[in-house]
Simulated scan of single mutants.
Amino acid sequence: MPDDAARLGALYDAHAASVRRYAVHLTGDSAAADDVVQETLLRAWRTPRILAEDPAATRSWMYTVARHLVVDEARSARRRREITMAETPETAVQDAADAVLDAMLIEEALAGLSRAHRDVVVRAYYLGSSIAEIAEELAVAEGTVKSRLHYGLRALRLALQEKGVTR
Results as ranks from 00 to 15, higher is better:
Arg157Leu: 14
Asp13Phe: 07
Glu133Pro: 10
Asp98Lys: 12
Arg59Asn: 11
Arg118Glu: 00
Ala92Ile: 12
Lys146Gln: 10
His68Val: 09
Arg78Gly: 15
Glu39Ser: 03
Val36Thr: 02
Leu160Met: 11
Leu41Ser: 04
Asp29His: 11
Leu113Glu: 02
Val120His: 00
Ala33Gly: 00
Thr64Leu: 11
Arg154Pro: 06
Asp13Cys: 04
Gly112Arg: 14
Val65Met: 14
Ser60Gly: 12
Ser76Pro: 08
Arg148Cys: 04
Thr27Phe: 04
Glu133Val: 10
Gly9Glu: 13
Asp54Leu: 09
Ala74Gly: 12
Pro89Gly: 08
Met104Gly: 06
Arg154Phe: 10
Gly164Glu: 04
Ala86Leu: 13
Leu160Trp: 02
Glu82Met: 14
Ala159Gly: 14
Ser129Arg: 10
Ser60Asp: 11
His15Val: 05
Lys146Asn: 12
Ser130Phe: 05
Ala109Val: 04
Lys163Trp: 07
Arg148His: 15
Ala77Trp: 10
Gly112Thr: 13
Met1Thr: 09
Arg123Cys: 01
Glu133Cys: 09
Leu127Glu: 15
Val37Pro: 03
Asp119Ile: 07
Thr144His: 05
Gln161Asp: 07
Ala155Trp: 08
Glu137Thr: 15
Arg157Ile: 05
His25Asp: 06
Asp95His: 12
Ala111Val: 04
Leu149Val: 00
Thr58Met: 10
Ala96Ile: 08
Ala14Val: 03
Leu11Arg: 05
His25Trp: 13
Ala56His: 13
Glu107Lys: 06
Ala159Val: 05
Ala111Trp: 03
Ala44Glu: 00
Ser129Cys: 14
Ala99Arg: 14
Glu137His: 11
Val36Trp: 01
Ala14Met: 05
Val140Tyr: 04
Val120Ser: 00
Tyr63Leu: 15
His15Arg: 09
Ala17His: 06
Arg7Ile: 01
Ser147Cys: 06
